[in-house]
């Protein structure tokens, strides 16, 4: 399968993981129309960077439909708010419910697209590299399960095919007996083979105290810089939330921003966060262009 490796994916998996955690949590917590719009835009841009047209196909196949439904359904079912736009029967459809729905829809869309990006970047081995440091035992089990599931499926198909052509052996075996036999043999296969695997593990020293963890990834200077910046931006955004600069409420009346200084700086910090992968990609692209022009 063709997988585009953007520059941010080449960072340490830990950096990637921290980034996705920060962006997704903040997108959920900061309920503000502007930041959520930025978050969705950032997620979409990154998804396109990662997967091109395929990501748009994903966007329109699911998140987009859910978003449209939220926008339509929220004002129909929720009648809070003080500014009625029109009435359906006796129930008012309010401006506030409509705006709330629009904001919620941005949040849902952005979080879904961030998870889409997450699944593209954090493949199983990249996730393992992060998880292994925290819980080396469970991460090994995870790796073994990932190996075992496709093998089990494969063996089930092989047994079915083999039995289909085994002939009847004179006496016809009933369908239930055949199915039960196949199932029991699949279980036996799994157990027997895992005994051999556990021998192989013991033979290579599994179970000795002081097991270390190896991931094959190395933290680089740019990972440190990225994480430092990520912390600064995240703290800024949270400060904006706490001080009320990023306050937003739809009911009973739409109200944006409580502090007097405005919210520009906080929103800028959040925007930089959401577009960081794109910024990194463009910076890298420019650097290459420059290098090429020198050659």
């Amino acid at each position: 399968m063709y997988l585009r490796h953007d520059e941010f994916t080449k960072y340490h998996p830990g950096t990637n993981f921290a980034y996705f955690c920060a962006v997704i949590i903040l997108s959920l917590v900061i309920f503000h129309p502007v930041t959520m719009g930025i978050s969705l835009a950032g997620a979409l841009v990154y998804a396109i960077l990662l997967r091109g047209g395929k990501s748009l196909k994903f966007f329109f196949s699911m998140p987009f439909i859910i978003m449209i439904l939220t926008v339509i359904l929220n004002p129909i079912f929720v009648h809070k708010g003080i500014t009625p736009l029109f009435y359906i029967g006796d129930s008012p459809v309010t401006k506030e419910a409509f705006i709330y729905g629009a904001c919620a829809t941005l949040m849902i869309g952005s979080v879904m697209m961030w998870f889409y990006c997450y699944s593209q970047v954090m493949t199983s081995d990249r996730f393992m590299a992060v998880a292994g440091r925290v819980m080396p035992k469970s991460s090994l089990v995870f790796s073994m399960v990932l190996r075992f599931i496709p093998r089990l499926k494969n063996q089930a198909v092989k047994i079915r095919n083999a039995r289909r052509n085994a002939g009847t052996n004179g006496e016809a075996v009933s369908k239930t007996k055949e199915a039960a036999g196949q199932m029991s043999m699949l279980t036996t296969w799994a157990l027997e083979n895992s005994i051999e695997t556990s021998d192989a593990m013991r033979s290579r020293g599994y179970g000795l105290p002081g097991r270390t963890h190896y991931s094959g990834y190395k933290m680089q200077a740019r990972d440190g810089v990225f994480i430092a910046l990520l912390i600064i931006f995240a703290v800024t955004v949270i400060a904006g939330k706490i001080t009320g600069a990023l306050f937003f409420a739809a009911y009973p009346q739409v109200k944006i921003g409580l502090s007097e200084g405005g919210s520009g700086a906080y929103i800028a910090a959040f925007a930089l966060m959401c577009f960081a992968p794109a910024v990194i990609e463009i910076a890298e692209e420019l650097r290459w262009k420059q290098l090429e022009s020198k050659i």
């Binding site: 199983s124 081995d125 790796s143 990932l146 190996r147 051999e196 290579r204 000795l208 097991r211 190896y214």
Partner: peptide
């Protein structure tokens, strides 16, 4: 004998590292 049953992990590089991890070798 059985090539399949001796492989423990899902990735080639991890399989190579597996024995050394068990022995507590530094990354």
């Amino acid at each position: 004998q059985n090539p399949e049953n001796q492989i423990v992990t899902d990735k080639v590089w991890h399989e190579l590292a597996f024995g050394l991890e068990n022995l507590g070798t530094e990354p």
